[in-house]
Design a protein around this nucleic acid. Structure first.
Length: 557
RNA sequence: AACUCCGUGGUGUAACGGUAGCACAACAGAUUUUGGUUCUGUUUGUCAAGGUUCGAAUCCUUGCGGGGUUGCCA
């Protein structure tokens, strides 16, 4: 009847559509170009979803290319971890794995080409002098005394640079563009620097390394990338990107398009700050579940599918926005609600004795594994005379809106029985240590009794004799400030001291013993929990991935 | 006060000169063997001022606000 509106596309996909329609390109080739100097985080995930997503949608391909032009900062360990993280996210580059370092020889030849064209020269000024003569935002720069040296001289010097005849930093190769250009990147940018450092792929073959600007666009061109998508901070580099492609005999001319990077509230995303959190021990490592690193959120139990859905909903624009972490958590809950098997776990136990339940009897209660997926079937949960329930689920003197257990009141034990609280037993300190209750045998499985009696709450439980112990790690946002980056003082001043709470007395349904590390399940009424990689059969550890929505917590403030 | 990019509910994101829509959040209700899920409803928005036009979030001008740029990092 009504025609659904065409799905709206972001501005990048619209550009691609136009380029395909106009015949500018026959297909689409994108690339994800990480520098192997750190672990991937959610910001990278946005870029990965964009680049690999476009490749999938348009039947094109997406290359994985390591931008490895700075051997001082880069390590093979990161090359491996980055690939692992991209695969985990659910993307595949097929055979298209590249390294900018594979193009070093070609880039060198192109540098020679520029020199011969009179568009590049060897500068002998110090780094400090180059900085000083670049001018500033208001005033133009001044020319290097070496700017107009003969072509042959520059070429000879550049060859000597490569041959290792000069010390680190002694000379650089610069493009000869315009020292008065309003865009500082165009004021004779450095193309090559002398750097004696072992490169993770080329070893000590080179002692000169090309700069990012001289590498990235040409690498794109060599790979016939059609659309080179990057974040906004490279906007000012685009004229230079194009200048190289226009002045070099490259096989293609990709188009650079910039989009806004991902910002999330209550966290930090910059590599530098994440590194600081790790090295200074504010978190346990790169895979700390509180971190927005892909390794962190994986350990936390976030499914890759949820990350992809999240990236889809935040979209792609040029506007610098800060996304609400609730959007991410919603995506996580949506996937987990659909997929996660349910179990019962009591985090803060209080003992319940069913005074009218036979002393040695044990029943196997049948419980649904996932109400969203009846086909997943049921599990058996042991029930006996002594149980644990959540301390929070009992109140001696309940307020009006509290529906759970209290003296004289009846509740349903999920998949168990109705129970009524008859007596509260306290220790000398007045702390509640035990609840004496009676169960209604006619409500087996939690069924409503024939007399039409209703109950306002259903609570979770575990059988005391069958329960297994586990360590539970409750995670909260790492920062108290919504924008730790912009808040007063150092971002570290705004760390949330309660971002990790470790519970050791939790009692779990015995079925949980078989949950494998990395698997995420729901603890009914509490939230989603992921068996930690530290978890073993004898010492179970669960991380709280995210809590369930909690209307009661909200109501009581 | 150089160059450049960007301003749509609380947060994101659509509308390509023709009814400002969607998601999340918030709030209210219904359903419920998870105070979960699901369903229904409500609140809140085009940075400002001019101009063009029958008609402007959209085009033009000016202003205001925010970001980026002065590495031999990427």
């Amino acid at each position: 009847m009504s025609v659904p509106p065409p799905p709206s596309k972001d501005f990048i996909r619209e550009i691609i559509d136009e380029d395909l329609a106009s015949g500018k390109h026959a297909g689409t080739v994108t690339r994800f170009p990480p520098e192997p100097n750190g672990y991937l985080h959610l910001g990278h995930a946005k870029s990965i979803c964009l680049n690999f997503g476009i490749a999938e949608e348009y039947g094109g391909r997406c290359h994985l290319r390591f931008d490895d032009t700075n051997p001082i900062k880069e390590e093979i360990e990161y090359v491996d971890s980055i690939q692992e993280d991209i695969r985990w996210l659910g993307f595949d580059w097929g055979g298209h794995l590249y390294f900018a370092s594979d193009y070093f020889e070609q880039l060198y030849e192109w540098a020679i080409h520029l020199i011969q064209e009179g568009k590049a020269y060897v500068d002998e000024q110090s780094a400090e002098a180059i900085r000083r003569t670049r001018g500033d935002l208001q005033s133009p720069g001044t020319a290097s005394p070496w700017r107009d040296r003969p072509v042959d001289e520059s070429q000879a010097l550049f060859v000597q640079m490569r041959a290792g005849e000069f010390a680190d930093g002694e000379k650089v190769l610069r493009a000869k563009i315009d020292m008065a250009h309003p865009n500082l990147n165009m004021r004779d940018p450095v193309l090559y620097r002398i750097l004696r450092a072992d490169h993770h792929r080329t070893g000590d073959k080179w002692c000169i390394y090309p700069m990012y600007d001289f590498t990235h666009g040409q690498s794109d061109a060599l790979e016939h990338i059609t659309h080179s998508l990057c974040t906004l901070e490279f906007e000012n580099h685009r004229p230079l990107y194009d200048w190289f492609l226009e002045n070099l005999p490259v096989p293609s001319h990709p188009r650079q398009i910039e989009f806004s990077r991902l910002n999330l509230n209550y966290t930090v995303m910059s590599k530098r700050k994440l590194l600081q959190l790790v090295t200074e021990g504010h978190v346990s490592g790169w895979d700390d579940p509180r971190l927005p690193t892909l390794r962190g959120i994986r350990r936390r139990g976030y499914p890759p599918e949820a990350i992809r859905a999240f990236c889809k909903t935040i979209g792609i624009t040029k506007f610098q926005s800060t996304n609400d972490i609730a959007l991410l958590e919603n995506a996580v809950r949506e996937v987990l609600n659909r997929e996660a098997p349910r179990y019962m776990a009591v985090l803060d136990p209080i003992r319940v004795v069913l005074t009218n339940y036979p002393e040695d009897q044990v029943e196997e209660m049948e419980a649904v594994i996932n109400p969203e997926k009846p086909e997943d079937g049921t599990r058996l949960v042991p029930f006996s005379r002594e149980l644990y329930i959540e301390r929070e689920d009992f109140m001696e003197d309940p307020p009006k809106k509290f529906f759970r257990l209290s003296p004289g009141r009846e509740v349903r034990l999920r998949s168990g029985y109705f129970i009524r609280c008859d007596e509260v037993i306290k220790d000398d300190a007045g702390e509640i240590v035990e609840l004496r209750c009676t169960y209604d045998p006619t409500t087996r499985g939690g069924e409503n009794p024939a007399d039409g009696r209703k109950v306002k709450a259903t609570i979770h439980w575990v059988s005391a004799a069958h329960a297994i112990d586990a360590e539970i790690r409750l995670y909260d946002r790492l920062f108290r400030s919504e924008t730790p980056d912009r808040a007063e003082g150092s971002f570290l001043d705004h760390l949330n001291p309660d971002s990790l709470q470790i519970l050791t007395g939790a009692k779990l349904e015995s079925n949980l013993a078989k949950v494998a590390p990395g698997e995420t399940v729901q603890f009914e009424r509490l939230g989603y929990f992921c068996a930690d990689i530290d978890s073993t059969a004898t010492a179970l550890v669960f991380n709280r991935t995210v809590g369930l929505r909690d209307a009661w917590a909200k109501a009581k403030g």
